[in-house]
Design a protein around this nucleic acid. Structure first.
Length: 303
DNA sequence: CGCATTTGACCCGCGC
DNA sequence: GCGCGGGTCAAATGCG
C-alpha cells in the first residue's frame, strides 16, 4: 500500500510517499486474516535491509552505520505500527459490516464510511469474477477546509465531472469524475466528504492511468530520477532496494554502458552512502517527521 | 461560442 | 416482479 501525503501544494514539490505495503489493504475476499503471517513477521529479528555488513568500516562510516541501524529500527517500528493498525482496522471493518447483509458488488472492498477518516490511503484489487483481470482501487483521504464546498482533490491529474449523487449512508453528495487528460484513460474517481468529519475528503480512484501525470510529464510514474543530464535513469524507490537495482540491471541489458553503473549501484558502499544521504536528509527534515507523525495519527482509529 | 459543470432521468444489479 | 440504491447519461445552464 502506498501512503500519499498530499502537501496541498503539489505544484512546487513532489508528494511524500511512504510505502506501507503491509497493512491497510482490506483483506481480499476468501483469504484468511493476514494477522497470522504478520505476527510471524513480528517475531522476526530486525535485520538490516541492505545485507550483512563488514567489520572493516572506516570511522567516517560509523555515523552512517548508526543512522542505518536507526533507520532500520524506525522502519521496523513503523511496520509494526502499521500491522497493529491493520489488525485493528480489519476488526473494525468486520464488526461494522452492514447489518442487512446486502452485498455491495462494486463497493465490496470499500470499508464503511465510519472508518473513512482512519484510512488515509488504501489500495485494493477487485477480482473480476474469478478471472485474473484486476481493477486497482485506491482510496485517499485529504484534509480540507470544512467551508470548502468544492469536491476537488488536487492530485495532479485533470478530471471531468460527470455526475453527482447523494448516497444513503452519507448526507454529503458524492461526485463522480473521469480522467480528462487522456480520452482513452479509464480511470474514474469518486469524491465524498467523510460522514464523520466533513473536513476529510475521501477520494476513491478506480483503475490506473495509462499516461504520465500532467504535472510530472516525462517522468516515469512512481520513480525518482537520479540523473538529470543525458539519458535519465530512474530508480523506483517505492520498491525495495534490490528490486530497484534489478530493474536497473534489466534496463542495462538494453542500454550499453549501464552495466558498470549498475554494479556500482549494487555495491554495499554505494548503498551505505545512499542510506547515509537519505537518512541525513530525512532526519534533518522536520516536514518528514511531522508528516510521518500525522500519517500514523491518521491511521489510528478513534474510540 | 465553446467548454465544463449541474442535475434530473435513466439504467442496472441486487435483495426481498 | 418490484423496490431500492449506486452509477451513468445527456440536456440545461453557467462561465470565460
Amino acid at each position: 500500500m502506498m501512503l500519499l501525503m498530499d502537501s496541498g501544494s503539489r505544484g512546487d514539490c513532489s508528494p511524500v510517499c511512504l510505502d506501507l505495503s503491509v497493512g491497510l489493504s482490506p483483506p481480499s475476499p476468501g483469504s484468511g486474516p493476514e494477522t497470522t503471517a504478520d505476527a510471524e513477521r513480528l517475531d522476526r529479528p530486525a535485520t538490516g535491509c541492505w545485507g550483512p555488513r563488514t567489520s572493516s568500516l572506516a570511522d567516517g562510516q560509523e555515523e552512517a552505520k548508526t543512522l542505518e541501524a536507526r533507520l532500520t529500527q524506525v522502519s521496523e517500528e513503523n511496520r509494526r505500527l502499521t500491522e497493529i493498525i491493520a489488525y485493528m482496522y480489519a476488526s473494525q471493518v468486520a464488526a461494522q459490516r452492514s447489518p442487512d447483509g446486502r452485498k455491495r458488488s462494486r463497493d465490496s472492498l470499500e470499508p464503511s464510511n465510519s472508518s473513512d477518516a482512519n484510512a488515509a490511503v488504501e489500495s485494493a484489487a477487485l477480482s473480476d469474477e474469478g478471472t485474473c483481470r484486476r481493477i486497482k482501487l485506491t482510496r485517499v483521504c485529504t484534509k480540507i477546509d470544512p467551508s470548502d464546498t468544492t469536491l476537488a482533490v488536487k492530485d495532479g491529474y485533470q478530471w471531468r465531472k460527470y455526475g453527482q449523487k447523494v448516497t444513503r449512508d452519507n448526507p454529503s453528495p458524492r461526485a463522480y469524475f473521469r480522467c480528462a487528460y487522456a480520452p482513452s484513460c479509464p480511470v474514474k474517481k469518486k469524491v465524498q466528504r467523510s460522514a464523520e468529519d466533513s473536513a476529510v475528503l475521501v477520494a476513491t480512484y478506480e483503475g490506473e492511468h495509462n499516461h504520465p501525470s500532467p504535472t510530472r510529464a516525462g517522468e516515469l510514474p512512481s520513480s525518482t530520477s537520479i540523473n538529470s543530464s543525458g539519458p535519465a535513469i530512474t530508480l523506483d524507490l517505492t520498491r525495495n532496494g534490490a528490486g530497484a537495482v534489478r530493474g536497473l540491471e534489466a534496463a542495462a541489458a538494453e542500454v550499453p554502458g549501464l552495466k558498470r553503473l549498475c554494479q556500482e549501484i549494487a555495491s554495499p558502499d554505494f548503498r551505505t552512502a545512499l542510506v547515509e544521504q537519505m537518512a541525513r536528509s530525512l532526519t534533518k527534515d522536520p516536514k518528514f517527521t511531522d508528516a510521518l507523525a500525522a500519517a500514523i495519527l491518521q491511521q489510528l482509529p478513534e474510540y
